[in-house]
């Protein structure tokens, strides 16, 4: 007999799914704000070759970009207690997301900074701005504006990647779906709906961040 799809046993747990989705969005928001801040810091050190931080950020970026997020997460959650750092599932998830996004955004933002036209630096110098003032008032915002779409894509990659945080008992969307399917034995339907939620969230977050970027970074709502 052909399989009968039945979504009702999943929809009965809609509240759990929505709570999980909200938790995923919360993780993403925290990861995005802190991760991009870390990226700005790293990009300054890299673009201006401020040693030894530039070299340290270089190693960090390569270490993170060449290992899986899941392994980073396990290392933080299971490995760090050996050093006396014991984190909850939430804390470890946020930390892993920040560290992961920080590495990618360091590279992305650095590219934006390095694409600053030389004339901009000269104009700022001719107006007697110092290096720090030039960076804050002349370089940073246009650099972020140039790479904002790439940063937004990276935030979304990190949000989708956070599905694996369910493995360290962070009660986000995938964790909720796992819990529900263990109760109703409707794994396919449950994960199908969770996937649809992720898809909608990815669209939503992209729209939202692009608008925020247009408003606060490009500086001109269109």
């Amino acid at each position: 007999m052909a399989y009968q799809f039945d979504f009702a046993p999943v929809l009965a747990h809609t509240d759990l799914l929505l709570q999980g989705a909200a938790a995923t969005l919360g993780l993403t928001a925290a990861g995005a704000v802190l991760g991009i801040a870390l990226g700005v810091l790293g990009a300054i050190c890299r673009a201006w070759r401020i040693q030894p931080f530039s070299a340290a950020f270089g190693v960090y970026v390569e270490a993170i970009r060449n290992t899986p997020f899941l392994v980073q997460l396990f290392f933080i959650f299971f490995g760090l207690p050996a050093l006396g750092v014991k984190l909850s599932g939430w804390e470890a998830s946020i930390l892993a997301m920040v560290i992961n996004l920080g590495a990618y955004s360091t590279e992305i933002i650095r590219a934006g900074i390095e694409a600053t036209p030389h004339g901009q630096m000269e104009a700022a110098a001719s107006l007697a701005l110092n290096r720090a003032q030039t960076f804050v008032y002349v370089v940073l915002r246009p650099a972020l504006a140039r790479v904002w779409p790439a940063l937004v894509s990276q935030v979304i990659i990190v949000m989708l990647g956070s599905a694996v945080c369910s493995q360290i008992a962070a009660e986000e969307l995938t964790f909720a779906a796992n819990f529900i399917q263990s109760r109703n034995f409707r794994a396919f339907e449950t994960f199908f709906l969770a996937t649809a939620l992720y898809f909608a969230m990815a669209l939503l977050v992209r729209q939202l961040l692009m608008r925020l970027g247009q408003r606060f970074i490009v500086g001109r709502p269109r």
């Binding site: 004339g119 700022a124 001719s126 107006l127 701005l129 003032q133 008032y137 504006a145």
Partner: peptide, 25 residues
């Protein structure tokens, strides 16, 4: 100094371009 390529700051309005150096310097 005035440059051949203008070198205005693209993220600032005309007024803000003029105000920047008196403000921060």
């Amino acid at each position: 100094m005035v440059f051949q390529q203008f070198n205005l700051f693209p993220h600032l309005t005309a007024g803000q371009n003029v105000m920047l150096a008196p403000t921060v310097v």
